[in-house]
Write a protein that binds this DNA or RNA. Structure first.
Lengths: 208, 208
DNA sequence: AGCACAATACACTCGTGAGTGCATATTGAT
DNA sequence: ATCAATATGCACTCACGAGTGTATTGTGCT
């Protein structure tokens, strides 16, 4: 059965997907390093030892390359939201879980690409999909916040503005995080979440 | 004395500065709308009813146009830091003052440009000046935080990570703020600062 | 063996936009 | 009145990079 046509068909499909993936990975790394506009697909091809024409065999155009990269990043965030919501514990526990994952994803190749790329980089055609995904994440964030407010495990904050504020803070590491730096993603995420949950004002009594 | 050569020389200088300024203003607006790379200097010139060649009379190249815009924005932030530090009151009071101004500046044309522009957009030559200014602002922010921690008016937070977290949150409005939207800069800034100062965790006892 | 199709390369077109050379107008100084 | 300098436009060059037409190779299928 090793060589049945089914297996082979599947195999080829997998090969193709793997190659497409490799292109996206190479592309996203270069986008993050030099920026989307300063990166030519010739560069990306060269970094893989292939020709630009090959890239166009797997992806329609440069815009689609970017959209795929961003989509991967955004879908990771959506997954994180789903996972967090499935957790046991208080609303606050689920929120904290989500925030941690959010920060960490934003220090991964595709996540970095998300936080560094603005709407200007995408084509008219790609914008709707992009905006829809962004919106979903915003909705998920607000949902998680609302649940936590409702069960009283966090204070009665303004959900909308809090979601914006959190998003900003959590996305920022994508701009300055340096894999060679001293701080690990996990340390960064812990520190940031602590600040955001506790706030700057002194607590009336320190809790356990 | 109305027509003394001094007056005229000064006048001409002022005219020139005003024109240069108008170019920067027009440029920054377009950069913010379409993005730096999607904006050609021909576009900017057209929006002012002049020719591209005229722009090159006041500014050396596109890179310098951007650098000037960013510098204006960053210098506003530095000013805000100085003003805040000169205020009376507790360290917390000065910090809050600074944060409010910070957010508001980030919703002004030049401030938006700062928060939307990454290092990729600048040339090798411009980077040092850019980085130096950014650093100054980070230092100022940490200074203000440190003072507030030391006089006990805010909790004993990790200054470095808090500065990063705040910067992220405060810069974010530059990405989504819409002058036509319902929320005014002042409302946004108030809401964000409240979230950041108070945190999400419930307070042990609500204060006055 | 031969066919069909996927994968890849090479060499090209074409548009766009940064930056410039030159010619011209305007204005203050002598 | 004339000169010098400043301001501005027009038309150009030049490089770069996205995307493509076509040829070539490899591989599974019959």
């Amino acid at each position: 059965m090793q060589n049945s046509p089914f297996r082979n068909a599947a195999q080829r499909e997998a090969d193709r997907a793997a190659k497409r993936d490799a292109v996206l990975r190479a592309a996203v790394r270069m986008f993050n390093e030099r920026g989307f506009f300063a990166t030519s697909l010739d560069d990306v091809a060269a970094s893989l030892g292939i020709s630009k024409r090959t890239i166009y065999h797997y992806l329609a155009n440069k815009d689609q390359v970017l959209l795929e990269c961003i989509t991967i990043g955004l879908e990771q965030l959506l997954e994180a939201a789903d996972e967090a919501r499935a957790e046991p514990g208080s609303g606050r526990d689920r929120l904290v879980k989500f925030l941690h994952r959010y920060v960490e994803i934003n220090m991964d190749d595709f996540g970095i690409c998300v936080s560094r790329t603005g709407e200007e980089a995408l084509s008219r055609d790609s914008l709707p999909r992009y905006r829809a995904l962004k919106k979903k994440i915003d909705v998920a964030m607000r949902q998680i916040l609302t649940e936590a407010v409702e069960d009283g495990s966090i204070g009665p904050i303004d959900v909308k503005m809090t979601a914006f504020t959190l998003a900003g803070a959590l996305n920022w590491p994508g701009r300055w995080y340096d894999p060679e730096g001293e701080l690990t993603p996990s340390q960064i995420s812990k520190a940031m979440v602590r600040v955001l949950m506790g706030g700057l004002d002194p607590r009336n009594s320190p809790d356990a």
